[in-house]
Amino acid sequence: MNHEALSVLASLFPFLDWHGFFFLLFAGVACVAAVMVVLSDNVVRMALHLVLSLGATAGLFFLAGAEFVGAMQLMIYVGGTLVLLVFGVMLTAQTQLVALRTPAGDRVIAGILAAALLAVLVQAAFSIDSWQKAGQGVATAPTATPLGMALVGVRVDQVADENLVRPKSGYLLPFEIVSVHLLVVLVGAAYLARAKRRRVPRPVDLVASADSVKPGSPVAASSTLVAGGSE
């Protein structure tokens, strides 16, 4: 294949710039899946579309050069949605909960308001000139190391800035606060979701006897629910 044929081929497909292509692909998947989350009534379908949307967003992060955030998005966000999906399956095992329909009137009003909100946001997105200038497309240094240093309190990306007398302080305190917050949330969620003893039997207990599984473990709760629902 000689060069002329190649250049002809290239001129036939001017849009085959992979960055633009993948941006369109990921953005399209993310937006369409997000709309599908709104439109579908089945919780499991919703969860699937949400996963698609979040995964495509992770792809967008990779495209924007934020690899670490993208990987974390895949690991935490999508993993968290996995739990949502599990709950969806558990709770939809009861048929009357599969689809909780919204009245059509509400949908119309929501659609109008959403369109208005979207119009405002899109207008805002294109209102600043410097935001519209296309990216240089220069491969930038990976941000994982500076990110990690910033989280322990050192801003390595600010060192070479002559205007600063001292490098900006990092995010050590927020990092610690978030970690304690997560711990508190963990304990709180476990406390809220624990199996409680009660005098009036719960509806699920009437159907399923939780004799073989130890009460208190999350699995015990889930399997009880599934058993109760699918009877």
């Binding site: 633009g20 292509f21 989350v37 959403a114 200038k133």
Partner: peptide
């Protein structure tokens, strides 16, 4: 659009996701 992905394009995606979430 092709080859000239800018911050604005990302903002539009973010806006759509945000609106869908609110709805």
């Amino acid at each position: 659009l092709f080859g000239v992905v800018s911050v604005s394009h990302y903002l539009v995606v973010g806006a759509i996701l945000f609106t869908c979430g609110v709805v």
